[in-house]
Amino acid sequence: MKVPVSLTVNGESVSADVDPRMLLVELLREELRLTGTHVGCDTSQCGCCVVHMNGRSVKSCSVLAVAADDAEVTTIEGLAVGDELHPMQQAFHEHHGLQCGFCTPGMIMSAIDLIDRNPNPSEAEIRHWLEGNLCRCTGYHNIVKAIEAAAAEIRSR
């Protein structure tokens, strides 16, 4: 059984006939070649695969591609405008919020969802929000700092 899906990814319309068992992350990475979204654990623990679907952050390894039919999806590739990084990307850069960088796309997509809902989160709220995003390098401190800085930058705009 193949199922037709049509969705918007980073503002562009995309259509494909997919096997129902294809995951959203597989559609993004293998069909659309948007490899900025990573697969870490493939068991919905690590958060490397977080993208936005209809304005909510989701783990794309635990969403079927067919379930994204008609959805608006944003990936890490959809954030920068030309050469200008999104404030969250810029803040991760400036505050050294990454080392190996593997978790970073998921961290950034997750953090943007937080700021969309809560423009001025406390440190505790940021740490609670990031429970679904694992980083094995940084110890999280600089990630939290980056998110605080990005939130302040976005508020000031």
Binding site: R56, S57, K59, V63, S110, W129, L130, G132
Partner: peptide, 9 residues
Amino acid sequence: IGDSQVRNR
């Protein structure tokens, strides 16, 4: 429950 993304689905 779970984490932010689990609560979103």
